[in-house]
């Protein structure tokens, strides 16, 4: 069941990352997301969009659609773009055992996304482009605000 949903659609560049961060922070506040999880959500989305603008659109302006929603106590964030197809298997995770001098610099963004979120999946189709779905479990309130008014609902809940 989807209880809360916000969308942001933009044609943007790296310069829009702060605006995207503000969108996530605002959605977290409206949905009363656990404050301890808000930074993780904001950062995961920032890293995802940064990769899109840098790699999928190669630094040029491109279309991105973000959806922030709660499903039960989970937050699910979907990020769509129509840039170059992204293959996560082509980005090896950073080898933490290596001394920093020998470590390649890339791959940190994807690594952080995986660390900050519980589930993460990438799909690509020529028709729909890249679709990234990230979820974080147990961070939305049991009784979320309604999507339109932001007020908390107070349904009569059966006692267990």
């Amino acid at each position: 069941m989807t209880s809360f949903r916000r969308e942001l659609h933009l044609v943007g560049t790296m310069a829009d990352l702060a605006r995207i961060g503000a969108f996530i922070e605002e959605a977290c506040a409206q949905a009363h997301i656990d404050p301890a999880a808000r930074f993780d959500l904001m950062m995961a989305v920032d890293e995802a969009c940064s990769n899109i603008f840098e790699h999928a659109y190669n630094g040029l302006a491109g279309e991105v659609t973000l959806r922030f929603e709660t499903r039960g106590r989970d937050v699910v964030i979907t990020v769509r773009d129509h840039g170059r197809a992204f293959d996560p298997d082509g980005v090896p995770p950073p080898d933490m055992a290596l001394p920093l001098e020998e470590r390649p610099i890339g791959g940190l963004g994807l690594h952080l996304m995986r660390q900050l979120m519980d589930d993460i999946s990438f799909t690509f189709s020529p028709e729909h482009g890249n679709i990234l779905v990230m979820a974080k479990h147990g961070v939305a309130p049991v009784d979320p605000p309604t999507p339109t008014t932001g007020r908390r609902r107070s349904p009569a809940r059966p006692k267990p």
């Binding site: 990352l17 961060g21 904001m42 950062m43 920032d46 890293e47 940064s50 610099i105 890339g106 940190l108 963004g109 690594h111 952080l112």
Partner: peptide
């Protein structure tokens, strides 16, 4: 806020 781009 410091992203991975800052770390790089």
């Amino acid at each position: 806020y410091a992203s991975s781009a800052c770390l790089r």
